[in-house]
């Protein structure tokens, strides 16, 4: 009995020792290149009307906030040189597809870059974005929205008011984000 108990204790001690080593290895070696993406969208304290704009996509199709009134809109300011923009792009696409057929859209607003460069970049992504990408070549729209760094994302309600904001990369393909959008879709105009 005593011997058996001792063996169990030895095994448990070994397991604990291995767990310690793994934990230490994790602490010492885990060094992500950039922060893991969270999913938090922060409510804007005092919702304000989203500044209107008209920007064009690669096919010269125009998009404006005025025309999107009645829909919930996610505006994502981004650029190809920005690693977290690349990181979050597949989750934006997933969200766009999940709400397809509903009054929700994602608009990617590329900052400053040439459409040819952006197109080549998009072909290089793990998931090709099918949501509209428009070009803010002189950066005026980002200034109007008070964007200081990329990526920055705004969520607009059906009235065209900015109601949520996220500065920095996010994983938008998350149940909490879907819940937020669903609630905005259910709001009356």
């Amino acid at each position: 009995m005593h011997l058996q108990g001792r063996r169990v204790n030895d095994r448990a001690a070994r397991v604990i020792a291995i767990l310690w080593l793994l934990l230490l290895a994790g602490v010492v070696f885990a060094q992500p290149a950039e922060p893991e993406l969270g999913h938090q969208l922060n409510p804007v304290k005092e919702p304000v009307p989203a500044p209107d704009f008209t920007l064009r996509d690669m096919d010269d199709r125009a998009y404006s906030i005025r025309d999107l009134r009645g829909s919930v809109v996610m505006l994502n300011f981004w650029a190809t040189w920005c690693p977290p923009c690349r990181h979050e792009m597949p989750s934006l696409e997933a969200l766009y597809r999940k709400f397809s057929g509903e009054a929700f859209t994602v608009i990617g607003i590329n900052e400053w870059e040439d459409p040819d460069l952006v197109f080549a970049y998009m072909g290089d992504l793990s998931v090709f974005p099918t949501f509209p990408i428009v070009y803010d070549r002189d950066g005026d729209v980002s200034v109007a929205y008070g964007v200081k760094g990329l990526p920055t994302t705004y969520l607009l309600n059906r009235n065209g008011d900015i109601v949520y904001r996220a500065v920095g990369g996010r994983n938008f393909d998350h149940p909490e984000v879907e819940k937020t959008i669903r609630a905005l879709l259910e709001e009356r105009n």
Binding site: N42, A79, C82, P83, W112, L150, V167, R170
Partner: peptide, 22 residues
């Protein structure tokens, strides 16, 4: 040149989960 990206912004208000790189 009208370029204004890739540098860390001068000042920012970060809500929970917000972050920036530059």
């Amino acid at each position: 040149v009208s370029y204004r990206w890739s540098l860390l912004p001068d000042d920012q208000v970060f809500e929970p989960g917000d972050w920036s790189q530059g």
